[in-house]
Nucleic acid binder design. Structure first.
Length: 275
DNA sequence: AACAGGTTCAACCGCGACTTA
DNA sequence: ATAAGTCGCGGTTGAACCTGT
């Protein structure tokens, strides 16, 4: 179709956002809401393109954003979701309240990928690295045969093992519930190609239908996480213990840059104190 | 202290999908 | 039907920061 990028227009600012710009955008969106992004900069008095404003709001200014490190539960969930969804960051982010696709993508690329590699797991396939090498060899060997079924069985087995391993960290009851649900409601039907309406869909590959089926079970796990983090204990003491467990399970992704700019922003305009 | 190399993450870019005129 | 505008996504970039020497 050929159109100019909005950011190519002269005069428009690029790069890091100043606290003043943040304030203008924040005040505008909280007052008038999110409407047409292309008109936001003009109405908010910003020399930015609408796209840049949208991104800034979604990734940084939105009041419902969760700040700080990813919890162990979030980490497990991201890995599990990535295993099923691949690099569909927006869909993964949709299952983690308060997290953005950009944040999760960065976390994946900077931390989780390496962590999986260290564990001998290929972050792209979520299979053991050696198994991958063998699979490649086999594929070359048997390239004329139809390998679909054995492959799917291997993946199913792996999902069973991996998902169970991840979820057991949350707690036994929820893990059992989750595993039951994920295995019998969604993954097994997806992985076994029993997806009624889409059985002819890409020869058993990923489909939107199967993805939709995931929503319920993902919502379930998210709720479990919420329960664990915010409700799960009846006393303050218990919740402290759980919070400590969560904190101790996390690993260093907390960025001073983030906290610094957060403080800077909070200090630079008081409106954030009201959120 | 100074520098180099590595890491992190906010922001940009290009593209496809969707909507509107 | 289609051109133009808009939105949202995923990949990439580069400045800021960290760490080791």
């Amino acid at each position: 179709m050929g159109r100019n990028s909005c950011c190519l227009k002269p005069k428009l600012r690029k790069g890091l956002w100043s606290p003043e710009e943040d304030e203008k955008l924040f005040n505008y969106i909280t007052t008038f809401g999110v409407g047409c992004w292309s008109s936001v900069p003009k109405l908010a008095g910003l020399e930015r393109c609408g796209k840049s404003c949208r991104l800034r709001w979604i990734n940084y200014l939105r009041p419902d954003l969760k700040r700080g490190m990813f919890s162990q539960q979030e980490e497990d969930l991201i890995i599990s979701l990535h295993e099923v969804l691949g690099n569909r960051w927006a869909q993964i982010a949709a299952q983690l309240p308060g997290r953005t696709d950009n944040e999760i993508k960065n976390f994946w690329n900077s931390c989780l990928k390496k962590k999986l590699m260290k564990q001998g797991i290929d972050p792209a396939t979520h299979k053991p690295l050696e198994e991958n090498m063998e699979a490649i060899k086999d594929e070359k060997k048997n390239s004329t045969y139809n390998n679909e079924k054995p492959k799917m069985e291997a993946i199913h087995h792996h999902h069973h093992h991996h998902l169970h391993g991840n979820i057991s960290k949350i707690n036994e009851e929820s893990s059992q519930h989750f595993v039951n649900k994920i295995e019998f409601d969604s993954l097994s039907s997806y992985l076994n190609g029993e997806n009624n309406n889409n059985s002819n869909n890409n020869g058993g590959g990923f489909s939107w239908e199967s993805e939709n089926k995931l929503e319920n079970l993902l919502e379930f796990q998210t709720n479990q996480m919420k329960n664990l983090e915010f409700k799960g204990s009846s006393s303050v003491e218990e919740s402290k213990i759980i919070q400590n467990q969560i904190n101790s399970a996390t690993f260093g992704s907390y960025h001073p840059l983030m906290s610094m700019s957060e403080n800077e922003r909070a200090g630079s305009f008081g409106i954030f104190h009201h959120i």
